[in-house]
């Protein structure tokens, strides 16, 4: 009976150790063991029973590889999700840090241009990180027809949405620059007008939130 178990273990040697695969393996071991016991009960010799059980498995490769495909896609998506979470949280951290930097540097009574440029440097780094990450997301190509179709559908939907989001963002930021320059030149209050960018950033997040809630 252990021989049957060992045989199945070997079949699953090169498969990923996901719960689905382990479930299938255990199911197979249990079914085959029961079959083996029944054959012994019917008076079969151990070696004959073993042979019959093994030959009754059939072409299992296809089944295992189809589970593997599911796994690879899920695994990739999981990794991407994790990376996205990391990049977004670091970027948000830098955004917050940039505000703190402004406050601290102002308190130190450093010249405005240093305060403003350190703010923009930090904001720029965070923004670059986000943009780079989302531009470099991997494309998924898999053999399994249905999964590919589903994924294409999903991706198309998403790219349409992100197209809209990008347009809204560029409108917001262009408007912000125009407002900043207009207000600054008319009031000459350059030391405070940069706050427009923070408001714009806030506004952008609010728009994002509204869009996410509508979905």
């Amino acid at each position: 009976m252990d021989k049957v178990k060992n045989y199945v273990e070997e079949l699953f040697n090169n498969t990923p150790k996901t719960s689905r695969v382990l479930d299938l393996k255990n199911e197979l071991i249990m079914d085959l063991s029961e079959k083996y016991d029944d054959l012994i009960k019917d008076g079969k010799k151990e070696s004959d029973a073993y042979k019959e059980v093994i030959s009754s498995i059939g072409e299992i490769d296809e089944l295992i590889s189809s589970i593997n495909n599911d796994y690879i896609i899920n695994d990739n998506m999981l990794k991407t999700k994790r990376k996205t979470a990391l990049v977004v949280s670091i970027s948000v951290g830098i955004y917050i840090l940039s505000l703190i930097a402004v406050i601290v540097l102002s308190e130190l009574e450093l010249p405005d241009y240093i305060v403003v440029s350190s703010f923009f440097t930090l904001v720029g780094i965070a923004t670059c990180m986000i943009v780079y990450h989302f531009m470099s997301l991997p494309k998924y190509i898999k053999n399994d027809e249905t999964i590919v179709e589903e994924f294409k559908e999903w991706k198309n939907k998403n790219s349409k949405k992100s197209e809209i989001k990008k347009t809204i963002n560029s409108i917001i930021w262009t408007l912000t620059v125009i407002i900043y320059l207009l207000v600054s030149f008319s009031t000459m209050a350059w030391h405070i007008t940069w706050i427009v960018f923070i408001i714009a950033s806030l506004f952008e997040q609010v728009v994002k939130l509204i869009m996410a809630m509508k979905e």
């Binding site: 085959l32 079959k35 059939g58």
Partner: peptide
Amino acid sequence: GYEINKTVKEKTNNLYEFKEATLYCAFK
């Protein structure tokens, strides 16, 4: 799985039974 296959075998008087792989593909 095995119970279903056993019934198939009994009902057909040992003429037919599924391969495990066929059965599990169908389940999936």
